[in-house]
Design a protein around this nucleic acid. Structure first.
Length: 312
DNA sequence: AATATTCACAACCGCTATCCG
DNA sequence: TCGGATAGCGGTTGTGAATAT
């Protein structure tokens, strides 16, 4: 991996002089350690935000957009460096299967990883890996439905970091059934209101004010201002977060049961999906356990909970 | 050793959503 | 209501490093 700060600003040579902010004389290309230090020191002193005017205030010959990107993707203390771990890779696969190219949403569930990093990792590693396995990385469906006509039949399968997460197609059917139902109940704006989350040293999750957290904080302030009104967005946010957490743990029914406790008859189950029986499981406690077993069997896991050793 | 190719990823671009006067 | 400013997102580009020939 090349050192992003040590290389010369070759991009500025090769790219036409059309700075993203429309200003001439703005430096582009790789950041130098000196620039990094100036930016980091300034943000530590004055905080994030007001990116357009930040370069001038900090004394940088960069556009605000570039400063923001550099801070978000590289300089932020919460950014984790290093290789994507197998369990992180597996989580990316699962979340992508559920959310598609919603990189910021995916990144929000993987502490310390940025959307850009996950996007890059997907494009350079995971999408190719899925293709080699005969799986369409966009749909997570088989590229060649008929195995007899498979053009990749002679290609040995890639060993997945977490074999229990495959076969993907089985999982995808299940996940999409859930996702369809949930996304229908969480409009796009609500989905996008889920900020990245930062894990504190003590392990608690916070929602700081920068890096996409503005929407969440605005949402909260709106909620506080309109407590008298029938406003459900904030509840949806918590519910969706809970849902994603449950997916991460592969315990979808924990989510569903909490849904039932909070809002009975909240999410209609579409017909024709295998998960439809889960609603029966909720309403008929005796069949719940069997349905959990069925659904989790599709994930190749036991007891419906994804343990850390399962991911290792 | 020289050259070509592939890989990995930082950075940029264009666009959209939201805020705010 | 409108329009400018701002923040954020996802797609794409282009570079240096690594590897193959």
């Amino acid at each position: 991996m090349r050192n992003p700060s040590s290389s010369s600003s070759a991009r500025s040579r090769s790219t036409p002089a059309t700075p993203c902010c429309g200003k001439v004389g703005i430096k582009r290309g790789p950041w130098t350690p000196e620039e990094d230090e100036i930016l980091a020191n300034y943000i530590h002193k004055d905080g994030e935000g007001r990116w357009r005017t930040l370069p001038k205030r900090a004394g940088l010959l960069r556009c605000g957009k570039s400063c923001r990107l550099r801070w978000m993707n590289y300089l932020r203390p919460s950014v984790k460096r290093g290789r994507i771990a197998p369990d992180e890779e597996d989580l990316i696969l699962r979340l992508h299967r559920l959310l598609g190219n919603r990189w910021s949403l995916i990144a929000g569930r993987i502490p310390g990883r940025t959307d850009n990093e996950i996007k890059n990792y997907w494009n350079t590693h995971l999408s190719k890996k899925l293709i080699r396995q005969g799986i369409d990385p966009k749909t997570h469906k088989p590229l060649y439905p008929n195995p007899n006509s498979s053009q990749i039949s002679n290609i040995p399968p890639i060993q997945n970091s977490n074999p229990s997460s495959f076969p993907l197609e089985e999982n995808a059917r299940f996940d999409r059934a859930i996702a369809t139902r949930v996304i229908d109940n969480f409009p796009l704006t609500n989905l996008d209101q889920f900020p990245n989350q930062v894990i504190n040293d003590d392990g608690a999750e916070n929602r700081p004010s920068g890096d996409g957290f503005n929407k969440g904080s605005v949402l909260q302030s709106r909620h506080e201002q309109n407590e008298e009104e029938d406003y459900t967005g904030y509840e949806n946010e918590d519910t969706f977060s809970l849902f994603l957490d449950s997916l991460i743990n592969e315990n979808v029914f924990m989510y569903q049961e909490q849904q039932q406790l909070q809002q009975p008859n909240n999410i209609p189950v579409p017909s024709g999906e295998p998960v439809i029986s889960s609603s029966q499981a909720i309403h008929h406690g005796s069949s719940c356990e069997a349905e959990v077993s069925y659904s989790m069997a599709a994930f190749g896991e036991k007891d419906g909970v994804l343990n850390s050793h399962d991911l290792a």
